[in-house]
Structure formats: C-alpha cells, structure tokens
Write a protein that binds this DNA or RNA. Structure first.
Lengths: 197, 197
DNA sequence: GACGACATGTAATTTGTTACATGATTGC
DNA sequence: GCAATCATGTAACAAATTACATGTCGTC
C-alpha cells in the first residue's frame, strides 16, 4: 500500500494538481512507482478526507477547475513513519520470463522477435536514465550547492542508479538470450524432467 | 493476466493438485510468477469450467480430498497462442526505491537497517539460485541426455539466469547504497530542486 | 476420539485497469 | 459558437491480498 506515500512524497517535493501529479508519475516518480490518473484522483480524495493533504484556496467548485494540493503536518508525519517501516521485497512477477518458461514446454515460436522488441525498449529506457544522470548528477552539473551533493542528492542519485542498473541488467540478459535462441529454429521441446527450474 | 498461463505451464510440466501447485509456486514457478493458494484454486475452477483442464478421475467429492488436474488440448492451444503474444515490460513499482525517495524528503531515519536486511535477503536468494544452477545446469549434471542441452533446457536455464542476474544486481546496488548512506548520519535534507528525478 | 498435517475452498477488502462522462478555457 | 485541450471525476470490472471455514486422513 504505497500509493498514498508516493503521492505525499511528490506533493512535498512540489504542491501539484491531479493532472500535474499524473504527468510526474509518467516521468520522475513513475520510474519507481507507476500510477494512472484514476488511481491518483481516488487517492487524493482519500488523503484529503483523512486530513493529510488539503486543496489550496483559489479553486473550490471542482469539476474542470484546477485544484492544487499541499501536504499537511499529519501527512508529513504519516510519511515519516512509513519511511522507517519494513517491507520484504516482493517476489518477481514477470510475464516475459513466464513466456520463456512456457515456450520451453509448447515451443518458442516467435519468441526472438519479442526479445528483440524488449531489448529495444530497455535500451531506450537506459538511455533516458543516463541522460538524466549526466544532466543532474555529474560533477559540475550538481543539483546542489557548492558544498557538494547533500544527503538528499545522494539518495536521489542512488534511486536513479537502481533504475540504470536494472535496465542494464535486462539489456545484457536479453542480448545473451538472443544469442542463444535467436539463431536456433524454434523446437517443440521434450517434456521436462522434475521441475528443473 | 498471466496467472492462468502460469498454471497451464505448470500442469503441462506435471499434472498436480491445487496444493502441489501452491508448493511449486513457492519454488520453481514462483521465481518468476508468484501466486497464493487462493488465487490458484479460483483459477483452477475457471480453467476447469472453461474446458482447458480437467480433474483426473479417482477423486470427485471435493472438499478435503485431493484433486489432480491435467491440461486438455484446448488448454495447450490457449497456452501456445499466448506464448507468441506481445506484452510491454511493466513499469517498475518498488517500495524500497520509493522509501529512499521519500527519505530524501523527510529524512533517512532507519534506512540503513532496512538496506542491510534487504541485502541479506537478496544474498540468500542468489545463493539458492546458484545452487540450483550448479545442480541442474552445469556440464555433467545436465538435465538433458547425451546430445547436450535441448532447446527447452536452454530456455529454462535462461530464465534461471535472469533470476541470478537480478539478484546479483540488487546485491551490488544495495552494497553500494550502504557504502554511501550507512556511515552518514540521517540528515533532514533540503527541499528538492525541480523534480531532480 | 483428539490432534496435527493435509487439502480445498469462501468471503471481504483493497488495489489496479479500462472505459467513459463532464466541465472549463482558449483560439479561431 | 465550435473544436481542441486541459482538467477532474464516475463506473464497472479484474486481480491480488487477507482472513477465515471446512473436510479428510493417519496416528497416538
């Protein structure tokens, strides 16, 4: 249940309207926590009702009119508490890996094309991340002041590097997978031994 | 919507009862597609009603009695079609990364402990995977016959290596993250620049 | 016959997805 | 006034999570 905390974080970084949040969840925030505008509006409603955020004056009448939110002390407290919480890493759930495992059973027809497609997507994402890194986190382009990077800068850079490392891992793995399957013709494959893994 | 296909794959590899499937989803299958027993029973019901699998004779009366399923031709056809489908990689959604980003805003209190905990978990998972690799996929211990690995073996090995690469990536990233945050005292952190990333 | 392990299931809730509905503002 | 865009929202559904309920079987 992290969506409300993602929104609180985003709003603390900068007060925003629902649509602005939606856009930020397509870039920055969305790189590690994705959400659609429907989820965001629903959650904004809840957070407002529970007194964790409030709409800035100016716009009341709702529909069609922009409505900006800011975080209240209760919201900041909620987020602070959540940050020091514990939560195990979620088990992996990856359709592409499942497809490969299924392909081992019913035949790998068309798989190489899909691998190539994913490779291109991950390469593009990697390039986007490294561009951001070059822009925001290299010596001289530091977001921070003359004292070098702050603790906050270092944390944000670490998060970005997780994204970079992940994309790099997929690019390398997909390249290797293509080397091994791309050339071979799709074989029907024999029934497996005991589970194999 | 991959759960039914995960189940079809598992049942093709070996006919099983609901509980057996649940156990296999805690190992092998679960390494790339996790599911709880409630999900599995519900989905088994649907697959049976839609004529994709059927219960082996022997056990009818239901509750408490073991019930084994096998895949029918319609099920195999469904899976074969699904394997050649296309699906974009899902955007990342990682609570730990979100926590770090939030920590950059409200302070990184207690974060290093959580990083150490995750590091230990990922190291254990990595060890489990490399054990399996050594057991099932090294020369001499090959699952396959004397002709060397089959296409199916190669695919299963690739899936396992994705797991290994992923865990290794996290182990390395978490080690680096600890080097950078573990020593520093938790700082309150200044308000961010424009989104930063 | 009571207990624990095995086994199958129901119910309620929350979260995420997809499709659609409606109002406001701006430029032509 | 009309179309395009910005902006907020509703509704219906699908999937996942959590908690609980029930039945069978072996064994002590």
């Amino acid at each position: 249940m992290s969506l409300p905390h993602a929104i609180l974080t985003a709003l603390l970084e900068r007060p925003s309207s629902g649509l602005e949040l939606t856009r930020r969840f397509d870039r920055s925030i969305g790189y590690f926590w994705s959400a659609t505008h429907q989820q965001i509006y629903r959650e904004l409603g809840r957070l407002e009702r529970s007194g964790r955020i409030r709409a800035l004056e100016s716009a009341r009448p709702a529909r069609g009119r922009k409505k900006e939110y800011e975080v209240l002390p209760a919201g900041r407290a909620e987020l602070t508490g959540w940050v020091s919480g514990r939560e195990d890493p979620k088990p992996v759930r990856d359709p592409l890996l499942l497809r490969m495992r299924a392909a081992a059973v019913v035949g790998a027809d068309g798989l190489p094309d899909e691998l190539r497609r994913h490779l291109a997507l991950h390469e593009r994402q990697l390039a986007e991340y490294t561009d951001i890194e070059a822009r925001d986190f290299t010596r001289g382009a530091e977001v921070s002041g003359p004292d070098g990077p702050t603790e906050a800068d270092r944390l944000r850079h670490l998060v970005l590097r997780a994204g970079i490392d992940l994309e790099r891992m997929w690019v390398e793995w997909l390249s290797e997978a293509l080397r091994e399957t791309g050339t071979a013709t799709a074989a029907p494959a024999a029934p497996a031994g005991p589970d194999g893994v």
